[in-house]
């Protein structure tokens, strides 16, 4: 039971990490980046190349991966979001473009890195440690701690800083934001770069769990969107809570029902959660007054 809870929390943290990055882009552009799962996969691939294949020390490799993936995310913005202008609500072009970019990323990864999944060493070694009678990898603790830190960071940045205000403003209107003297373009780029950095970190954290391969985030990516929606898109507290909740419920459901139906259960939970509280657990519903 507790073992299941622990593994549910680890998976949940990973969903939360994806949801956080999805949120940051949503907060500023109002779009969902459907290529995010694949960006995380690229993060894992680059980390594998830098740290495992080239033998670069872990921290330096981590930084290099973050920079590389941030650049990829910015390129993604220029290729799939920028062409559809500032008022993204009026077009669905970005939807197809980001979905397509995801497939392109997967195929590039297949071509460059091959199709066979590869192992990635867990942070803190592969010796199991026993805490309160639960056996876990030090890596699992790292996943929980880092996710919590990133969620806190975003909570502060988005909720309490002027940058956070500017990000939220950009999502309302690029032109009004410009009238405040804020370059909405720079804000959007900052957000894409930040989402890339989190994707890189998520990639490194996921790798030892899912192994590194072009398809590693196929279902995880989808659950990341789910976590973001359950929590209320654009809300970092919600993304964190939504991710953990999804992971834990999934793990508990699996221990009670056949694991083969776990995905169905996970998505059922999502549908129920969304229909009961469409704005998300932490989402703010406001009515517009004239």
């Amino acid at each position: 039971m507790f073992q299941a809870l622990e593994s549910g929390m680890v998976m949940g943290s990973i969903y939360a990490l994806l949801a956080l990055a999805i949120n940051i882009i949503y907060s500023t552009t109002g779009i969902i980046n459907f290529a995010h799962g694949e960006i995380v996969m690229l993060g894992a691939m680059f980390a594998l190349t830098f740290i495992v294949t080239s033998g670069i020390p872990f921290l330096l490799g981590l930084i290099l991966t973050c920079i590389t993936v941030a650049i990829v995310a910015v390129i993604l913005y220029y290729c799939t979001v920028r062409p559809f202008g500032d008022k993204l609500g009026n077009s669905l072009g970005w939807l197809m473009a980001t979905l397509g970019a995801g497939i392109v990323f997967t195929n590039i990864a297949m071509l460059v890195f091959g199709t066979q999944p590869k192992a990635f060493p867990p942070i803190g070694g592969s010796e199991l440690v026993k805490i309160f009678g639960i056996k876990l990898l030090p890596h699992d603790i790292w996943v929980l701690v880092i996710t919590l830190l990133i969620a806190l960071f975003f909570n502060v940045v988005l909720g309490k800083t002027i940058l956070g205000n500017a990000i939220k403003a950009t999502s309302f209107s690029h032109s009004v934001t410009k009238l405040m003297g804020i370059s909405s373009q720079k804000i959007v780029l900052t957000c894409f770069a930040m989402s890339g950095i989190i994707a890189a970190i998520a990639g490194i954290l996921i790798s030892p769990i899912t192994f590194v391969g072009p398809q590693m985030t196929a279902t995880i990516g989808l659950k990341g969107f789910g976590a973001a929606i359950i929590g209320g898109v654009g809300n970092s507290k919600g993304a964190f809570a939504g991710g953990l909740l999804l992971g834990i419920l999934e793990a508990l459901a699996m221990t009670q029902v056949t694991p083969g139906y776990k995905d169905a259960i996970a998505f059922l939970i999502m549908i129920i959660a969304i229909s009961i509280k469409p704005e998300g657990i932490f989402g703010v519903a406001y009515e517009k007054k004239v």
Binding site: A166, A169, F172, T177, Y286
Partner: peptide
């Protein structure tokens, strides 16, 4: 065109961004 999801204070903060 006030920022509808921001508080009144936050709107002013954005106005004073510069």
């Amino acid at each position: 065109q006030v920022f509808p999801q921001h508080t009144v204070y936050e709107n002013l903060v954005l106005g004073g961004y510069l």
